[in-house]
Amino acid sequence: MKNKLVSNALFYLLVLVIALMVLFPFLWMLSSSFKTQVDIIAWPPRLFFEPTLQNYIKVFEEQDFLKYFVNSTIVGGLAVGFSLLLGLPAAYTISRYTQKRLAVFILLARLMPGISFLMPWYIIFSRLGLMDSYTALVLSHMLIALPIVVWIMASYFNGIPTEMEESAMVDGATRQYAFLKIILPLSGPGIITATTLSFIFSWNNFMFSQVLSMEKTRTLPIAVYNFVSYAEVDWGGVMAAAVAIMTPAIIITMIFQKYVVKGLTMGAVKG
């Protein structure tokens, strides 16, 4: 009895320590977003302070936050949409025709540091006159989204018995029709997982937008950067912008997390 109590206490202590380690930067960011610049750089750090909304007002009034938000949504939405369009059939093919090499090749593209693509992209897109265009950004973000879709969905399709579409094909369907009418309707959790994860990765991407976008197509993460100038870093503005950017991603994750967990473990256990 006593042993159990002790082990329980230790367990929750450990959970608390890990949670604090993970959440500390987030809490720091959240509290700083309500602080004045003086409070933020005060030493020792101030746990209790008079909260101000000034930083948020700055983010939404001085910055064209809505435009960035729309840009991020367009870029994320199109990148994920096209990735699903290409990735779902690709994943199905990899799963059913066991194209392991192809799958590894796609993973390789994901494993290569994104920055190594940037220089060629910059040259190609500027010569094509595509700098600061949605096309360039969507294409670059598909480098992130497509492998996520392919890998999650291939393992998801592996969990669906092949008899499903074989039965449909004997019933008179083409493979494509069987894929559309039988396999896709059964893949909801997997598609939600792939969509959520790839959208969030796209949403959070800073590097590609920083290089490939300018005034017109600038996405949200760049808005954070606007608070960094030669003279000083406006920490309050940075933190408030970061909070504003993270909120939609957190909301999406919270809504879909149960599907995400289901979708990620789906291929693991044969159903």
Binding site: E163, E166, S167, M169, V170, D171, T174
Partner: peptide, 20 residues
Amino acid sequence: LPPRDRDIAMVFQNYALYPH
């Protein structure tokens, strides 16, 4: 000929009913 053009019907071991 693909399965759909053979005019056959098949009953599978695991039934393969469409769950949705």
